[in-house]
Design a binder for these strands. Structure first.
Length: 651
DNA sequence: AGCACGCCGACT
DNA sequence: GTCGGCGTGCTC
C-alpha cells in the first residue's frame, strides 16, 4: 500500500492535549479505503470508546513505544481533506493556540450520504476553461495579470462605481474586477478562492462571473444553501479540476487544486470576523495560505483596512496602481437643522438636490441600524433634543448613562425643551422604517423602497424611487443612484469600538460607490478627518494616520494581542510563561465575573509563534494537571484557561 | 471528556 | 481477605 501501513490520525476533540497525531495500524480489510484525507473511526484509550478523526498520512513505522490499536473503520472513502488544507488548518490553529480539529470543522461541511452517493455515481463534468478573456479592469493595464502570474500579494482600491455587465445586470465595479481576476486564474488552469463578507456581495460576484465563466467551474459555499447543496459543492471542489470557489469567511479553507488566486473583498467588514474557536480571521488564514501555496493574494476594498495598511507599510503587500477613477462627488454638510417641514434630519441644500434627483432616478438614503445609541427627544412634545451649548445631537452613550452632546460632550443634566419647556427626555430610535415614513411624506410623489437587514433588497431599477437602506443593506441601482444621502453619520460614530471610525468610513464609502458618476453624495452632520478622507476619496491616507496612532499606543494591528482568562493563580503562572518571550508586555489582569481574571498579552508579530507556544503549553498543563481539592470536601471544578488571539474587540 | 487504575476504609 | 469509594492520569 502506498506510504506505509501506519495511519496517523487527528482525533476530533476540543481538548488541547489530544491535538496531535495518534498512530494506528491499518487492518487488512481497510487497506484499500484507508487513504490520507478520509474520515476514520478510531478506538481511543479503552475498548468501547470510539472517536472520529482524520487520516492525515500513512507512514512506514511508528515512533510510539507501545502496541498500536487498529483503525476501527473508514467513514467515507472520499478523501475530503486535501493535504494543503490540512497544512493550512495546522498552521492557522498554531497561530492562535487552538486545535486543528476546530479549524477542520469550519473547513469541511457535514456529510450527506445520499448526496455523496449521487455524486460518486455521476460522471465528472467540470465544463471548459475560459478562453479569450478581456483584460482585468480596475488597475493599470496588465498590473493584476502580472501579479497573478508571479503570485504577488496585492492591495487594490477598486473603481468606486456600479458597472453594467454584458448580461445587462448592474454590479459594483469591484465584482467585475474580482470576477475577471478569478477567471484569468482559471484560464491558466489554476483554482481561485474568492471571499466576500455576505451573500449580497456574493450575488454580485456570481453575476459578474456568469458573464465569462462556465457555471460548472464556479462553486459557492454559503449558509443560504441547504446542507446537501453545500456538501455537493464541497465534493466537487475536492476534484482535481481547477475551480473558482466563492463564499463567506470559512471559504478560505475550501479545497482548491493548484490554487492560483486568493481574493478578498472588503477585508475590514466585521462579518469576516470568525466567531468560532480559535477565531482566526480569514485575512490571516489567507496570508498563511498564500505563503504555503504560492498563489496570488488580492485584497480589494474602497476603504483599506488598518491591517492591510500595515502589510503595505512593511512591504509584504504591494499597492496596485489605481487609474484616475471618477470619484464620488462627496459633499460634507455639517448642518443638522432644516426649516422644511418633515425634513428635520436633512440639510436644505441636500434636500433640494435630492428632490430634484428623485425625479430622474433612484436616490439612496443611508440610515443607521435601529436600536443602538438612541437619540433623545422631549418627552412631552417629541421635539428632538439638542445641546443647549452648541446645538449638537444629544445621546445616551450607554444604557442608564447620562445624556451628553455628541459634538461638544456637554452633559445635558439640566436640559429643558425650547419648544414646550418640558424637562424630561425620552429615547427615540430612528430606524429605517421610521425614516421611510417621514421621507415618504416629504417626497409625496415618490415610490419609497425600504431595505434593511431583515428584508434586504438586492437591486433597484433605474426608475425614480427613494431607497431607504440601513448601512450595509444598500441595493445596487441600475445605472447608479442620482443622489446619495448619508444621514446617520453622527449616530454611527457613537458605537463604542476601536474600529468605529474605520467602519464608518467603510459604510459611507461603500454607499458612495453606488452613486452614478457625478451624482452628489451628501455626508450629513460629520466633519473632520473622516469627512475629509471620504470627500477626497483618500481612504489609504486615513488608514496610514490611524495606524500611526495605534503604533503610538501599541494597539493592534501595530502589535498582536491575546486575551487570557483564568482564575488568579492560573493566570499569573500563564502570564509569567508569556513574559518569558521577548517583546511581550501585559495589560491587567482585571477581575471579571465568577472569580476569574482577564489580562491582555501584547506582543510583536515576530514573537507570535513563541507566545502561542507558551500559552498552548499552559493550556495543556492546566487541562491535565490534577484537580485541586479545596480544603474540607473535594470540589471537582473544571480548570479554566481561555486564550483568544487577535480578538477584534480588544482592547 | 471519559474511563480504568489504584490505594484506603468497612464488609462478609 | 476483598469490595468499592472516588482521586489521578492517560488517550496511539
Amino acid at each position: 500500500m502506498p506510504g506505509g501501513s501506519v495511519a496517523r490520525v487527528l482525533v476530533d476533540s476540543p481538548l488541547p492535549q489530544l491535538d496531535q497525531l495518534f498512530d494506528y495500524s491499518v487492518p487488512e480489510r481497510l487497506r484499500e479505503s484507508a487513504r490520507p484525507g478520509v474520515r476514520v473511526r478510531v478506538p481511543l484509550r479503552t475498548g468501547g470508546r470510539i472517536a472520529v478523526g482524520w487520516l492525515i498520512e500513512l507512514v512506514e513505522s511508528s515512533e510510539f513505544r507501545g502496541t498500536l490499536s487498529e483503525l476501527d473503520d473508514v467513514v467515507s472513502e472520499v478523501p475530503l481533506l486535501r493535504p494543503e488544507v490540512w497544512a493550512l488548518a495546522r498552521a492557522a490553529a498554531d497561530r492562535a493556540a487552538g486545535n486543528a480539529s476546530d479549524i477542520l470543522r469550519l473547513a469541511v461541511p457535514s456529510r450527506y450520504v445520499r448526496v455523496e452517493r449521487a455524486w460518486q455515481a455521476a460522471d465528472p463534468d467540470a465544463g471548459p476553461l475560459p478562453a479569450e478573456l478581456p483584460p482585468i479592469p480596475g488597475s493599470a493595464p496588465g498590473a493584476i495579470e502580472a501579479g497573478l502570474a508571479s503570485g504577488s500579494r496585492m492591495s487594490l482600491a477598486v473603481d468606486p462605481r456600479p458597472v453594467r455587465l454584458p448580461t445587462g445586470e448592474w454590479v459594483g465595479a469591484w465584482a467585475a474586477t474580482l470576477a475577471q481576476a478569478a477567471a484569468h486564474a482559471l484560464a491558466a488552469d489554476r483554482s481561485a478562492v474568492v471571499i466576500v463578507p455576505d451573500y449580497r456581495d456574493q450575488e454580485q460576484l456570481q453575476a459578474a462571473l456568469a458573464a465569462s465563466v462556465d457555471p460548472r467551474r464556479v462553486l459557492r459555499t454559503d449558509a443560504r444553501q441547504s446542507g446537501g447543496d453545500r456538501y455537493r459543492a464541497f465534493l466537487e471542489a475536492t476534484r482535481d479540476e481547477a475551480r473558482i470557489v466563492i463564499g463567506n469567511r470559512s471559504t478560505i479553507y475550501a479545497p482548491a487544486p493548484r490554487l492560483g488566486l486568493i481574493a478578498m473583498w472588503d477585508d475590514g467588514d466585521g462579518l469576516l470576523n470568525e466567531p468560532l474557536a480559535p477565531g482566526v480571521h480569514p485575512r490571516d488564514a489567507a496570508l498563511i495560505r498564500q505563503e504555503q501555496s504560492g498563489a496570488a493574494l488580492l485584497f480589494a476594498a474602497h476603504t483599506r483596512s488598518v491591517e492591510v495598511e500595515r502589510l503595505v507599510e512593511i512591504g509584504w503587500v504591494q499597492e496596485l496602481p489605481t487609474p484616475r477613477h471618477v470619484r464620488p462627488r462627496v459633499i460634507p454638510t455639517e448642518q443638522q437643522a432644516s426649516p422644511e417641514p418633515g425634513s428635520a434630519r436633512i440639510p436644505s441644500a441636500a434636500w433640494r438636490q435630492a428632490q430634484e434627483a428623485v425625479r430622474e432616478g433612484p436616490v439612496l438614503v443611508q440610515v443607521a441600524r435601529p436600536g443602538n445609541a438612541p437619540l433623545l427627544a422631549c418627552d412631552r412634545c417629541r421635539e428632538p433634543a439638542r445641546c443647549p451649548a452648541c446645538g449638537g445631537t444629544l445621546v445616551v452613550p450607554r444604557e442608564g448613562g447620562i445624556a451628553r452632546c455628541v459634538l461638544c460632550g456637554t452633559s445635558a443634566s439640566a436640559w429643558s425643551c425650547p419648544v414646550c419647556e418640558g424637562t424630561r427626555l425620552r429615547a427615540v430610535t430612528v430606524g429605517a422604517s421610521r425614516t421611510a415614513d417621514e421621507l415618504g411624506r416629504a417626497f409625496p410623489n415618490s415610490r419609497v423602497v425600504l431595505s434593511d437587514g431583515e428584508r434586504p433588497v438586492l437591486r433597484v431599477g433605474p426608475e425614480p424611487a427613494l431607497v431607504v437602506a440601513t448601512r450595509g443593506a444598500e441595493p445596487v441601482a441600475d445605472g447608479g443612484y442620482r443622489a446619495v444621502l448619508l444621514l446617520d453619520g453622527e449616530r454611527m460614530l457613537l458605537r463604542e469600538s476601536l474600529r468605529v471610525a474605520e467602519d464608518c468610513l467603510r459604510w459611507w464609502s461603500n454607499a458612495a460607490a453606488l452613486a452614478a458618476p457625478g451624482a452628489p453624495v451628501f455626508l450629513v452632520g460629520v466633519a473632520g478627518a473622516l469627512a475629509t478622507a471620504l470627500s477626497t476619496w483618500r481612504q489609504p491616507e486615513w488608514a496610514r494616520a490611524e495606524l500611526a496612532a495605534r503604533r503610538a499606543l501599541r494597539f493592534p494591528p501595530a502589535v498582536r494581542v491575546a486575551s487570557v482568562t483564568a482564575a488568579a493563580s492560573t493566570l499569573a503562572r500563564s502570564l509569567d510563561a508569556a513574559r518569558e518571550v521577548e517583546g511581550v508586555d501585559v495589560l491587567g489582569p482585571v477581575p471579571i465575573d465568577e472569580g476569574l481574571e482577564r489580562a491582555i498579552v501584547r506582543f510583536d508579530y515576530g514573537a507570535g509563534p513563541r507566545v502561542s507556544n507558551e500559552l498552548r503549553a499552559e493550556m495543556i498543563r492546566v487541562a491535565t494537571e490534577r484537580r485541586r481539592p479545596v480544603a474540607g470536601r473535594p470540589v471537582r471544578r473544571p480548570p479554566v484557561l481561555r486564550v483568544r488571539f487577535d480578538d477584534p474587540d480588544v482592547p
